[in-house]
């Protein structure tokens, strides 16, 4: 385990853009200028609804998709352009865990084969060393050596996701991108997998990019939260601040819609008008314009950049101080007047 100075960014994402051509010269702006850092031992959560571009961000970082513009810097080195040798080096640092362990594990490979493959590809180990590493890995994710001989279909959903995690950490990466790692799991299994991820992060000092639409989970695991809407980050800050004092109207709408499994909690919902607008050739305006309850004339005339409101909290809305007075706060207990 390497140690780094405080706030050392292992990965810096700068001005990342991904546009998909949709015919007729039009472009779908899946990601439209996203910046963030990933630091060892810390979790940044990307939250947002379907189509907000959060999975595309992860896919652009590990180059399953080629970004249209912008840069990903790993340990000070840009990964663009990327030749096969540098790609291999990058994968030593960056690994990914996917949402659906049924789809991301090869059904015809035993757990041993699945976990052995990255070791063979990336590390020069003897067979004995590999065997030792395999038993270490399965133990680390809370399974036993007897699971090594099994095929994915012989495992439960939670066990499969443990194997997905074991595969990602097998070659000692420093950064793990987790794309909805608990979305396909039952709630009781969800808690176990989250505990496992937190323990591994502590033991290996991993940086996590945690992509999720489940706000309850995000609050539980994240140090910092970035809220995405239509390809842009509209608000970013420490987890407690984003949840307790959301400043962007979209963040507030999202938070106020999330149900809580407690009796007697009544939500004051902030409703956005209409449906999500199209990401195809969006006009140079705030992405929320046309839906926003505190919209001003200027909102439809220019893009709203992410501006800091204090040292750690940034909001892409110049009228964020009016959010609280325009609508009731999301937590009913804190409801004023």
């Amino acid at each position: 385990m390497k140690t780094y100075p405080a706030n050392y960014p292992i990965v810096q994402v700068r001005g990342l853009k991904k546009l998909f051509p949709v015919g007729g010269g039009r472009k779908l702006h899946a990601i439209d200028g996203v910046d963030f850092d990933l630091q060892p031992g810390r979790t940044l959560a990307l939250v947002g609804e379907s189509g907000s571009g959060k999975s595309t961000v992860a896919r652009c970082i590990v180059r399953l998709l080629e970004p249209t513009d912008g840069d990903v810097v790993v340990h000070g080195n840009s990964v663009r352009p990327l030749n096969p040798v540098r790609m291999a080096t990058m994968y030593r640092t960056l690994q990914m865990v996917f949402q659906d362990p049924n789809a991301s594990l090869n059904p015809r490979m035993t757990v041993r084969k699945v976990l052995e493959e990255p070791l063979k590809l990336h590390l020069s180990m003897t067979q004995d060393e590999r065997n030792a590493r395999l038993s270490e890995l399965v133990t680390l994710v809370g399974l036993g050596e007897e699971h090594l001989a099994r095929y994915p279909h012989e495992l439960s959903g939670g066990q499969r996701q443990r194997i997905g995690i074991a595969r990602a950490i097998s070659i000692n990466p420093e950064v793990v991108l987790l794309d909805e790692p608990t979305a396909s799991l039952d709630v009781s299994v969800r808690g176990q997998i989250l505990d496992l991820l937190k323990r591994i992060q502590r033991e290996l000092n991993l940086a996590y990019l945690f992509i999720s639409h489940d706000l309850q989970v995000v609050r539980h695991v994240a140090d910092e939260v970035a809220v995405m809407y239509l390809g842009q980050i509209v608000e970013r800050g420490p987890t407690a601040e984003i949840f307790d004092n959301p400043r962007h109207p979209y963040t507030r709408a999202l938070m106020s819609a999330a149900p809580v499994a407690r009796y007697g909690v009544k939500r004051e919902r902030l409703r956005l008008a209409g449906e999500i607008s199209t990401p195809v050739d969006p006009p140079p305006a705030c992405r929320l314009s046309g839906r926003c309850p505190i919209e001003q004339p200027v909102c439809s005339q220019q893009r709203m950049p992410l501006e800091p409101i204090n040292e750690t909290h940034s909001v892409a809305c110049p009228f964020s101080d009016r959010v609280a007075e325009a609508v009731a706060p999301p937590v009913p207990a804190a409801k004023a007047g």
């Binding site: 149900p259 499994a261 909690v265 939500r267």
Partner: peptide, 8 residues
């Protein structure tokens, strides 16, 4: 399976 939806 979502108890949050149920509570309300």
């Amino acid at each position: 399976h979502d108890l949050g939806v149920v509570a309300e």
